[in-house]
Simulated scan of single mutants.
Amino acid sequence: MSRADRAVLGAYGAAVCAAAYGSMKLAQALGANALADKDPLPPELRERLLARDPLFVASHWVLAGAAVVGVVVALAAVRPWGAAVPRRLLLVVAWGLGIFMIARSVGVLGFGFVGDGLLLAGVRPPPVEHAALARDLARWDLLLWSPFFLLWGICWTATGRGLAARAPARG
């Protein structure tokens, strides 16, 4: 598969991931559970999330809107109408989101394969008062969220690589 083909596949993959994530956040904003109880949050924030605290409802609307923007940006990287968007902006967004999502999936940001693995292996002890919940959320993060963010991040970086390869030569 050529680099251009990988970039197109990455852009469409990023758009699909953004649409899936945005759909979930929209459902949560409208009152559905939609995996909200599987969100790896500290217990006090998790309770506020599940109680539909107005701040969390507002954040779901913002994230749903950001996901729509993500779909548009991903498609702008490979569709003809995207030529109207500055390439440098697309590059910054694609690489920035790709690196952020891969870092999140690996565990640099506290969640991810490393943190969840350490918690489930007993190397990093969970909070005593919430040990069962912490283990349950770590399993969900390890099996669902971290792979999802890794895939999404890989799609964004493939998009960024394709954009960089297509950048006009200077000289």
Rank of each mutant, 00 (worst) to 15 (best):
1 M>D: 03
2 S>M: 08
3 R>P: 05
5 D>Y: 07
7 A>S: 15
8 V>C: 03
9 L>E: 03
11 A>H: 10
12 Y>F: 15
13 G>W: 12
16 V>T: 12
18 A>M: 06
20 A>F: 08
21 Y>P: 01
22 G>V: 10
23 S>V: 02
23 S>Q: 03
25 K>N: 02
28 Q>G: 08
29 A>L: 06
29 A>S: 13
31 G>M: 10
32 A>F: 14
32 A>W: 14
33 N>M: 13
33 N>W: 01
33 N>A: 05
36 A>M: 15
36 A>F: 11
36 A>D: 14
40 P>I: 04
40 P>K: 00
41 L>R: 13
43 P>V: 04
44 E>Q: 12
45 L>K: 14
46 R>T: 02
47 E>P: 01
49 L>D: 13
52 R>C: 02
53 D>T: 01
53 D>Y: 02
53 D>Q: 03
59 S>I: 02
60 H>T: 01
62 V>T: 07
63 L>F: 09
65 G>S: 08
70 G>A: 04
70 G>M: 05
71 V>S: 07
72 V>S: 03
72 V>T: 07
72 V>P: 03
73 V>D: 08
74 A>K: 06
74 A>L: 10
74 A>P: 09
75 L>S: 05
76 A>I: 11
76 A>E: 09
77 A>G: 15
81 W>E: 14
86 P>M: 05
90 L>C: 05
90 L>T: 07
91 L>N: 00
92 V>M: 13
97 L>A: 11
97 L>N: 08
98 G>E: 03
98 G>M: 04
99 I>E: 00
100 F>S: 06
100 F>D: 05
101 M>P: 00
102 I>C: 11
102 I>P: 00
102 I>Y: 00
103 A>W: 01
104 R>A: 07
105 S>E: 02
107 G>A: 07
109 L>D: 04
113 F>I: 06
115 G>T: 07
116 D>W: 10
120 L>F: 07
121 A>P: 09
121 A>N: 12
121 A>E: 08
122 G>L: 11
131 A>G: 09
132 A>C: 01
133 L>K: 11
135 R>E: 15
136 D>A: 15
137 L>R: 04
138 A>D: 09
138 A>R: 09
139 R>V: 15
140 W>N: 11
140 W>Q: 09
141 D>I: 01
141 D>V: 00
145 W>M: 05
145 W>K: 10
145 W>C: 04
147 P>A: 09
147 P>M: 08
148 F>W: 13
151 L>V: 13
153 G>S: 00
155 C>V: 04
155 C>L: 05
158 A>F: 12
158 A>G: 01
159 T>P: 04
163 L>K: 10
164 A>Y: 12
164 A>S: 15
164 A>W: 15
167 A>H: 06
167 A>N: 02
168 P>Y: 02
168 P>A: 15
168 P>S: 13
171 G>V: 03
171 G>K: 06
171 G>W: 04
171 G>C: 03
